[in-house]
Simulated scan of single mutants.
Amino acid sequence: MKKVLLVLSIAVLILALTGCPGWFNFGDVQKMTIPEIIEWIDTNEATDVSEFLVETEGIVTYAYSYYAYIVDAENNGIMLRSDSSVIDFRDFNPGDKISVVGSPYFSKYGEYRLDTDTPGGTATLIEKNVALPDPYVLPAGEGLTVGLFGKLVQLTARYDGTDSYGHHTFNNGGVTVTVFKYSDMPSDLATNTTYTIMGVVGQSYGYKLFVWDKSYVLPAE
């Protein structure tokens, strides 16, 4: 009887471990889509980097030296993070399709991330000038939330000027949408003028729109 119970216990343990990749096969690289990565982060409540590595592909929507954002063809997005000098995401441009290996987690700032600093982390160009997916059109009266994190978002809103930190603020039907101050914005933005803006939803002391190129900001027709 004891032998049977021991066998059953081992079987249950194996099933539990194989069902939780965050606890099993450390060092292996598992191919996942961006939605699968986000689901894994939520299911495993991953809040820090680990030895669990995933590989995914996406189209760059915004890039800075130590972080970037990518989306898939359905506009599911995630942030890439590299705090070291090993990978400089400025080597990539919007429209570049890249392959990434990193450790997935949800940061304390409210970001779904792939950390490429972890051993085995990489970012490799696959193809240039890939068409971006259609953006999510933000309805009037709605703001930016974690549910939109990493996605391309477009809105038509009135420009109210800059806040005390230098970020650009837009009135979206009574709700303020903030554009990150280091975005490439037109120099001739006029207050009380309505614009159509497209960018990726990121986080910097709250969710903000990160705009890569001033051509994504146009006077509304």
Rank of each mutant, 00 (worst) to 15 (best):
Y62T: 06
E57G: 08
V60E: 06
E51I: 13
P139W: 01
I14L: 15
K31D: 14
K128N: 10
G166P: 01
I34M: 01
L138A: 03
L138N: 00
G141F: 06
M185Q: 08
D115V: 02
W212D: 14
V153E: 05
N93L: 09
F170C: 05
D188Q: 07
P133S: 03
R113V: 15
E142S: 04
R81H: 13
V137L: 14
I10V: 15
G77E: 04
A73Q: 10
V177K: 01
V146S: 14
L80C: 08
P119G: 04
V130Y: 03
Y66S: 13
Y182K: 10
R90E: 15
V201G: 12
I14P: 10
P186V: 07
I37D: 03
S82T: 04
Q30L: 11
K108V: 14
E36R: 10
Y165W: 09
N75H: 09
T47W: 07
Y182L: 11
I34T: 02
K151G: 00
D28F: 11
I41A: 05
L53M: 12
T61C: 10
S183R: 09
E51R: 13
G147R: 03
P186E: 04
V7C: 05
S65M: 09
G174Q: 00
L5C: 11
I78Y: 00
D83E: 04
T176H: 07
S9F: 10
V71D: 07
K214P: 01
Y112Q: 02
W23A: 15
V177P: 00
I87Y: 02
V201C: 15
G173A: 07
L144W: 00
I38K: 12
T33D: 03
E39L: 09
N75C: 13
